[in-house]
Design a protein around this nucleic acid. Structure first.
Length: 485
RNA sequence: GGCCCCAUAGUGAAGCGGUUAACACACAAGCCUUUCACGCUUGCGACGCGGGUUCGAAUCCCGCUGGGGUCACCA
């Protein structure tokens, strides 16, 4: 049942490119929204002034756009709940911090970083779990005045009173912990900028987010967030924490080990359709038997949070390859040609002046032979540049047969042949019985002599696409060189 | 180390107290075939360990082990 009150957000921090983990969360968000005729929101969580970069916001946006996961509200689109960049909402956070301060639910903390570090070390020394002692919680006005007079700029901490606090997770069930294990935590840094947990709560509430979806590493953040919701007397949204994606060695996916940014996958020649398909099945499955090739629409039809797994999943590049190959085969030749073109251009096999219809004909020949777009240059090269012809191999394929005579006959038969696959095949087959070569040896000789390799797309169709002139030229080249061997 | 999450073949997973423990990728073999690839068929291969509960546990409970996360004026 569609429910327009579904408001789901993806909230990346612009400290890098779009990560594959973000991509999967965004995909699930997108699906949830589509299923419920809801609203998908992009919010930029840029409260980390030290690590933000302007270009990474663009990178994140570009990545999501490449995947085709379009949002309804965001910094680039506007919306009724803006601004959508946390750095532009600082006054809002300050307002709520003041409210909590006024109610005595939060307080100023004048401790310096050095003092905090010293406290931590002292606690560690006596084997206590380090947590803020609450030293500044009950400071009198005079003391505050004095500390401020020393030039100390305070942070704001939320007073935590202990007790068991929990929340319902849509993929994991009830999760709780004893908050007496945590100290009063900072909600506003001394520079006036809120800490992630505080800003997130304020924004999720003000933006009327119904479902807070994110990766499992945020589970521990949820408890302090629940505390903030309570302090503000706000209702908590629904939470869903998805499994962590791991490298093949079971470590967390990181930039150091293989590709983690979706831009990298685009460059390697993965299709966005394949990427989405693959990511969807990492941490979720429809629960029925059958192949796992799904379009976005099919995912929207089948997905449910209840079927998400809570256990970590290893990012299996081999399976991604298989899905990508499947998707490449699903594209129309023209579509594939258009997508292959940038890879051919990057390899300098062609420029912009290429005939896309001719490329489509070539595409048909290589479509079933590619798992990634970046293989296109290697597979297609023989149609663009003159290959080295492997004379020794040709000689070997010929065996005892006379190479000169054989190729001359082929040349004579091909020159008058109308240049379409069926005619080429007819002519070439008709010639075979007169040559005293086995079918295998005959076609291998032709393949090596014209296509330059024992491994190639189908012979007759390749000749057609190559064009009569180039075929004749290559045969003549072989003929000359064989003669001189 | 404390706290939290997780645990079915190499990988992704189905399973929800009684099954010959699905399916998909990978791997192996065969078929198809003028090469490669596609496709098809078959095969290999799993409930981490130990206690309970029960007539009966992959399924429920406890412990252990293992993996992951998190312990910041990062998000």
């Amino acid at each position: 049942m569609p429910n327009p009150s579904y408001r789901v957000r993806i909230a990346p921090s612009p400290t890098g490119d779009a990560h594959v983990g973000h991509a999967r969360t965004a995909l699930y968000d997108y699906i949830l929204v589509k299923q419920n005729a809801g609203t998908f929101i992009l919010r930029i969580d840029d409260t980390d002034t030290a690590r933000n970069t302007a270009t990474s916001e663009e990178g994140v946006i570009r990545g999501l756009q490449w995947l085709g996961l379009d949002w309804d509200e965001g910094p680039d689109k506007g919306g009724d709940y803006g601004p959508y960049r946390q750095s532009e909402r600082l006054d809002t956070y300050a307002t709520y911090a003041k409210e909590l301060l006024a109610q005595g639910k939060a307080y100023f903390c004048y401790c310096s970083q050095e003092e905090l570090e010293a406290m931590r070390e002292a606690q560690l020394l006596v084997k206590e779990d380090p947590k803020y002692t609450g030293k500044c919680r009950h400071l009198g006005e005079a003391e505050k005045y004095k500390l401020a007079g020393e030039g100390r700029v305070p942070t704001v901490r939320l007073a935590v009173y202990g007790g068991v606090v929990g929340f319902e997770d849509l993929v994991r069930g009830w999760i709780e912990t004893n908050t007496s294990l945590m100290g009063d935590f900072i909600i506003l840094k001394s520079n006036g900028i809120p800490v992630y947990n505080f800003a997130t709560v304020i924004d999720d509430h003000l933006m009327a987010i119904s479902h807070v979806t994110r990766a499992a590493e945020h589970i521990v953040n949820t408890i302090p967030q629940v505390l903030i919701y309570r302090a503000l007397s706000w209702e908590v949204p629904k939470f869903a924490h998805f499994s962590t994606m791991l490298n093949e060695d079971r470590s967390k996916m990181s930039k150091r080990k293989g590709a983690t940014f979706i831009g990298q996958y685009a460059e390697m020649g993965y299709l966005p359709e394949a990427m989405l398909n693959f990511l969807a099945f990492l941490g979720w499955s429809p629960g029925d038997a059958g192949d796992e090739i799904y379009t976005l629409d099919e995912l929207v039809a089948k997905f449910s949070l209840e079927k998400c797994t809570a256990s970590n999943a290893i990012f299996d590049a081999k399976k991604l390859d298989w899905i990508n190959a499947k998707w490449i085969r699903r594209l129309s030749p023209l579509d594939l040609a258009v997508r292959m073109l940038p890879f051919l251009q990057r390899a300098e096999l062609t420029g912009n002046d290429i005939d896309i219809n001719w490329l489509s004909r070539l595409t048909v020949l290589v479509q079933e032979r590619m798992t990634r777009l970046d293989e296109a240059p290697a597979i297609c090269a023989l149609f663009f540049v003159e290959p080295e012809l492997p004379y020794a191999e040709i000689q070997k394929a010929l065996g005892d047969a006379d190479g000169r005579a054989t190729l001359s006959a082929v040349l004579r038969s091909l020159i008058p042949t109308p240049w379409v696959e069926s005619e080429i095949e007819k002519a070439l087959r008709a010639l075979q019985p007169t040559l005293g070569l086995s079918t295998k040896a005959y076609f291998m000789t032709l393949r090596l002599s014209i296509l330059g390799s024992a491994v190639s797309p189908p012979l007759f169709a390749s000749l057609e696409v190559l064009g009569k002139e180039r075929v004749i030229a290559r045969l003549e080249r072989t003929l000359t060189n064989l003669a001189s061997v």
